[in-house]
Design a protein around this nucleic acid. Sequence first.
DNA 1: TTGTCTTAGAGGTCTGACCTTTTGGAGGAC
DNA 2: GTCCTCCAAAAGGTCAGACCTCTAAGACAA
Lengths: 251, 251
Amino acid sequence: MSSNQTPDWQPLKRSRAHEMVIDAIEEQIMAGLLRVGDPLPPERELAARLQVSRAGVREAVRVLESDGILRSQRGAGPEAGTFVSALPRQGLTRLLRLHVALANFPMTDVVDARVVLERSSAERAASNASTAARAEMRAALARMDAPEVSREAFNDADTDFHIAIAEAGGNELVASLTAAIRGALRIPIQQAVRAVEHWDSLADRLRQDHRGILDAIEAGDGPTAARLTEEHIRRSATDLPAGFGGVTEPT
Amino acid sequence: MSSNQTPDWQPLKRSRAHEMVIDAIEEQIMAGLLRVGDPLPPERELAARLQVSRAGVREAVRVLESDGILRSQRGAGPEAGTFVSALPRQGLTRLLRLHVALANFPMTDVVDARVVLERSSAERAASNASTAARAEMRAALARMDAPEVSREAFNDADTDFHIAIAEAGGNELVASLTAAIRGALRIPIQQAVRAVEHWDSLADRLRQDHRGILDAIEAGDGPTAARLTEEHIRRSATDLPAGFGGVTEPT
DNA sequence: TTGTCTTAGAGGTCTGACCTTTTGGAGGAC
DNA sequence: GTCCTCCAAAAGGTCAGACCTCTAAGACAA
């Protein structure tokens, strides 16, 4: 029972200054001592207290800011300084966008993930959707119906429709993930859409798809809403050109 | 048709140096000029080229590093420098962990999101799981069966089991999200588990749950695997103490 | 062959100065 | 008294430069 195990030498991870600052801030948050809206000490003061340079503090703040955990504001007065915040979507979107562009997440996986998340949201939306949420969906649909709407505006409205459903589903995390994935696809989708030949007919089909989903939700028919959502997502992915990958062709 | 719209004065967003650096790097990635494994210029050189200070470059690198997009290595030689990388999980985990701690994502939403993602993975794993993936699951189960296993080790093995299923599902994005959510729950779960009274009986039930899920997967019975996974996740969430929220009680 | 020294290149850190934005108060003009 | 202008303070934003530390790789000695 004594020396049955060979010693495993794990590489020591040297912790850098800004990482210790992140950990220190994280610790306060985990302990509940920092809540949304609370201010952090001024950079200079925090640096002095943690015994690191201001640059180290700033690097940490930058990272947490990019995660939507902090928010910095210049100037003087009660609005100035760095505060705990709650904006997960932006950071989530950038993270996913870049990993999609790097093909760390293959497009087929992204499509399947959308199906899983959005089926669930659509189904829940059919029973949950508030009046406000339904109005949001109709507004997005109306923007897609606008005459002479540009392909970009059309797509942004399309995105808004899907996000509205996700939010109507009532799950903040699922909604954020859905919004982030959609946001990550914004540029590749726009590229693909610009290259489409028969845009008018495609746009019409998308409008019909959305209308069908909305009808199912308003009728309280969750299973149908889920099924239509899946069909819509898969068909759209298929119809858009292969360059959908987002990365320009290598060599 | 002329002045139907009131002018909306959007606040101009002053773009900060590090944000422009991020955009510049992002642009190269989006254009496909930077792929996983490629090196960035040395910080000093990049700063000179982009006409910003080295601090600005470093802040940008920190952000992208925290997203798992870049990786920095000290020293000399071909391994030293900053490289494009592909490690989305760590950054995703930290982001979710903090937003969960700040209660931006309520625990019920996190549980439901897990159900949605892991049901899908379990179902696919039943048809897809490779021999290696199944071995991974069995290994995690074995670690949970070890005599005298600590509650922490037990939970890490539990997590590994769920992640193994997610990976067996064959969707990299879903697997990453699952791993990140599980990782975000690691500390709150451990806190909850430490407070459990009848640990042995709970541990036994968890072992049985896992065994049942594994059996269903190995039998190729996707629907059962999905159902058992959902029941397992929901029951576990219910059984763990309410302090599960992760944040210590206010006031 | 093995160990030690040296050097160069890269990231890591710190210091201190200065810039810019924003608030709010002090003080004058009316 | 009211309004305007000006100024100081506070905070983040930026920069330049020096120095530290780590690592690879070559030179050289044992």
